[in-house]
């Protein structure tokens, strides 16, 4: 499958940045508005699948290999697990509250000024502690994982069809 017609490519060029911006917005505002890492990642992966269908799998595999997508997904998983384990480690630094697995260690403290305020319905993005960082990790993981599935399947069946 080496791409579709010029009309489909033009419409994809117009629609793809909008879908990308909307998905990244859903990921970044996951602790304020409906959505989160999985939902925004699914939206971005849908936009990338639209790009794959419009331009063909040969063009896309020239831009990004599936090994790079595997590395991105592993980075997301390691970030998620690492943030979960930092909740245990942070008890030695602050020593004022108890630490456990998936502890929200960035909220209710003043030493690190990162996401440490408490939101009260004002849509302040600098809130919610470790939740936005976990949203970014899970979003990266979902984007890379779902796009790797579609890309590998499309490229493998392309070879089988041409034989």
């Amino acid at each position: 499958m080496s791409g579709m017609s010029r009309i489909v490519k033009t419409i994809t060029n117009v629609a793809f940045p909008i879908v990308l911006i909307y998905g990244l917005y859903v990921i970044a505002h996951g602790h304020l508005t409906p959505g989160g890492g999985f939902q925004g990642g699914a939206v971005v992966a849908s936009g990338l699948a639209m790009l794959l269908v419009a331009y063909g799998s040969i063009w896309v595999i020239g831009k990004v290999k599936e090994k790079q997508l595997s590395i991105l997904e592993s980075i997301g998983a390691i970030g998620f697990i690492g943030l979960a384990f930092l909740g245990i480690l942070m008890v030695f630094i602050y020593s004022s509250f108890q630490g456990n697995f998936f502890n929200n260690f960035l909220i209710n403290q003043n030493e690190i000024p990162l996401f440490n305020e408490i939101g009260a319905g004002l849509a302040n993005i600098n809130t919610a502690g470790v939740i936005p960082l976990m949203n970014f990790a899970v979003g990266l993981k979902v984007i890379a994982g779902l796009f790797a599935i579609v890309l590998v399947m499309a490229y493998a069946t392309r070879i089988k069809e041409g034989k």
């Binding site: 699914a42 779902l146 579609v150």
Partner: peptide, 22 residues
């Protein structure tokens, strides 16, 4: 609703049509 529209309506259809093409 967002998760269902992204995964169910787009990615599942793409995977099914790629499988049918093969």
């Amino acid at each position: 609703a967002i998760a269902e529209a992204g995964v169910g309506a787009c990615l599942t259809t793409a995977i099914l049509i790629i499988s049918i093409r093969a």
